[in-house]
Design a protein around this nucleic acid. Structure first.
Lengths: 189, 189
DNA sequence: TCCGCTACGTTTAGATCTAAACGTAAACGA
DNA sequence: TCGTTTACGTTTAGATCTAAACGTAGCGGA
């Protein structure tokens, strides 16, 4: 009954070294090649960009989630507190503005704020006169929590990208920035 | 059914050109700068890599979801059918293998397969003798659907990355590949 | 031969997100 | 002045995912 092994149902890293006989997955180039073989002429150029971006995003997120769970905070809350903290004094933003900056819907923000408020990390105030906005402000406790968590997350991520040289990181960041600006323009975001 | 205006609650592209008076968001560099200002010495190097990767992943996914909805298929199903289709003849994979290749849990795969089977896109068969595996195989209908969808998605993505020159795309793909191999090694995936 | 161990797929409980429907408060125009 | 439009936050319904608990089927050692 008592299960001392907290290993869940996940795909499992590489517990065995023999089951990959049928061929590992594991490379966007393989996917592009496979499609090219199956459907010659297909526009597969994008695969080697879009797929690794998707996978890397997931790998970063999974790693971060594991670290955050140990710290007693979840990614959604971290996202909320971070964006407010980064906005600088007076550490307050409207619901709509938070939604815009975090790329989630206003409804989701409302729910995140409700949870964070329940936990005493933020407070909602009627906003300044005029526009009917609701300002979400960090409490002292919320401020302390984000202060503690951000170093953990940044430190962890810094280690993960250390495989690239400083020069490579600079080039990569530049290309990603350019691509993002372009994609945002094309998709209207 | 026919919905000529699928504009939901989302953050809304840029319906107004005036509300950004309080400062646009919009650059990983801004975030790094902000953290550097607030917490000097913090390891912010990773931000300009991790953040755009996350955002780009979301932008690609959102765009793809919109296109797929019109085609009558969702991203989870596309993911399932694609990985089987790409594996080549005889177009069949075990649940576990699918989980490993798509980076979702086995439980989620089970549910995805159940939905796809209900829709007549795949069938489950007892697998060959020996190992107690369940093989998921494409039906003719599933095969046709993925055939139709993949061009739509690839074509769309190809347009989105067109802002980068061929040379830039090559460099970017190379760096992403290198980074992914490294991150996977460090996180044990 | 028999019993326990391991691997695998499924099921279930719980959490969270999106999309859409609301309910109001300002702003605007006749 | 007053009704209409617009903007905003919240609530609700529905979908899907993860984590964990199960239920078995083969395999292997005593």
């Amino acid at each position: 009954m008592a299960d001392p092994d907290p290993r869940p149902d996940v795909p499992d890293p590489a517990a065995d070294g023999s089951s990959e006989g049928s061929g590992a997955v594991h490379s966007a180039a393989d996917i592009a090649t496979a499609w090219q073989r199956e459907r010659p002429g297909a526009p597969t150029d994008s695969i080697e960009i879009v797929t690794p971006i998707w996978w890397l995003g997931k790998l970063f997120a999974d790693d971060r989630d594991r670290a955050l769970r140990a710290a007693g905070i979840d990614a959604a809350t971290l996202d909320l507190l971070s964006v407010i903290r980064r906005s600088g004094p007076p550490y307050a933003l409207s619901t709509r503005e938070i939604a815009r900056r975090t790329l989630v819907t206003a409804g989701a923000v409302s729910q995140r704020v409700a949870r964070a408020e329940r936990d005493g990390l933020v407070v909602r105030s009627p906003g300044t006169t005029g526009r009917r906005t609701v300002l979400v402000r960090l409490t002292a406790e919320g401020h302390a929590l984000i202060e503690r968590s951000v170093d953990t997350v940044l430190g962890r991520e810094a280690r993960l990208v250390r495989g690239l040289s400083e020069e490579e990181r600079r080039v990569l960041a530049g290309l990603l920035d350019k691509l993002m600006a372009d994609v945002r323009r094309r998709t209207g975001r």
